[in-house]
Simulated assay, not measured.
Amino acid sequence: MSIYEHAITLNTGEEITLEQYKGNVLLIVNTASKCGFTPQYDGLEALYKSYKDKGLAIIGFPCDQFGHQEPGNDDDIAQFCAMNFGVTFPLSTKIDVNGPNTLPLYDELKNKAPGLLGSKRIKWNFTKFLVDTSGNVVKRYAPTAKPGDIEKDIIALL
């Protein structure tokens, strides 16, 4: 299945397919509002503002599977992100990235870019996947990788 065939529901309730991002570099991140990595929203937004007009798209996927660090509903999450970090890139509805209810997009991402030692499981919030302009999953980044640390990889794909 092409990454572009996946449907997601934005936190606004709008259902889209990733087809609309064809030709863009896409950064996909599972997020949480009460995590030690939550300040990465600042870096993600900075990347988005710097490169969205050059073809970068970022989608945040709130997830509450790690230490109950995303307890709010979709409206709470959107409000938190906008008020505290000025987030303007799209967010999905809250999803699962592991287990029986994993969003199919995440199954594909994990299969195409496994983690350390071939592990497919997402280990924590703010795991990032970089997708090129043709829909190829290029790289997976650990939660500890700050958005600024991957800027050079994004630039190389734009």
Score class of each variant (00 low, 15 high):
M1S: 15
S2V: 14
S2Y: 14
I3P: 11
H6Y: 13
I8Q: 11
I8G: 03
I8C: 04
L10D: 14
L10E: 14
L10H: 02
E15Q: 15
E19P: 09
E19W: 14
Q20E: 14
K22G: 01
K22C: 12
N24D: 07
V25T: 10
L26M: 03
A32Q: 09
K34L: 03
K34S: 06
K34H: 11
G36C: 01
F37Q: 00
P39K: 08
D42H: 11
G43H: 02
G43C: 00
L44G: 08
E45K: 01
Y48G: 08
Y51T: 11
Y51K: 15
Y51P: 10
Y51R: 15
D53I: 04
D53Y: 05
D53N: 07
D53K: 14
L56W: 01
L56S: 04
A57G: 14
A57R: 13
I58T: 09
I58A: 11
I58V: 09
I58F: 02
I59A: 12
G60Q: 04
F61M: 13
P62T: 14
C63T: 12
C63V: 08
C63Y: 08
D64S: 15
Q65W: 00
G67A: 09
H68P: 14
Q69N: 09
Q69P: 10
Q69T: 03
E70M: 12
P71T: 09
P71R: 10
N73Y: 01
D75A: 12
D76V: 15
D76E: 12
I77Y: 06
I77P: 08
I77H: 09
A78M: 15
Q79E: 15
F80A: 04
F80P: 06
F80V: 07
F80M: 04
A82L: 05
M83R: 13
M83K: 13
N84E: 12
F85L: 02
V87D: 09
F89L: 06
P90F: 08
I95S: 03
D96N: 13
V97T: 07
V97S: 11
P100W: 03
P100M: 06
P100F: 01
P100A: 00
N101D: 14
T102E: 13
L103Q: 02
L103G: 01
L105K: 03
L105E: 04
L105H: 00
L105M: 01
Y106F: 11
D107L: 15
L109I: 13
N111S: 07
K112W: 11
K112H: 13
A113S: 03
P114R: 07
P114V: 10
P114D: 02
P114E: 01
L116H: 13
L117V: 01
L117F: 13
G118D: 05
G118R: 04
G118W: 06
S119C: 03
K120W: 01
I122H: 00
W124N: 02
N125S: 13
T127Y: 09
F129Y: 00
L130R: 04
V131W: 08
V131S: 12
V131G: 07
V131K: 01
D132A: 05
D132I: 07
D132C: 10
S134N: 13
N136E: 11
R140A: 05
R140H: 09
R140L: 07
R140K: 05
Y141C: 07
A142S: 12
A145M: 03
A145T: 04
A145Y: 00
A145K: 02
K146E: 01
P147I: 08
D149I: 03
I150K: 02
K152T: 08
D153A: 04
I154S: 06
I155L: 12
L157K: 12
L158Q: 10
L158D: 10
L158V: 03
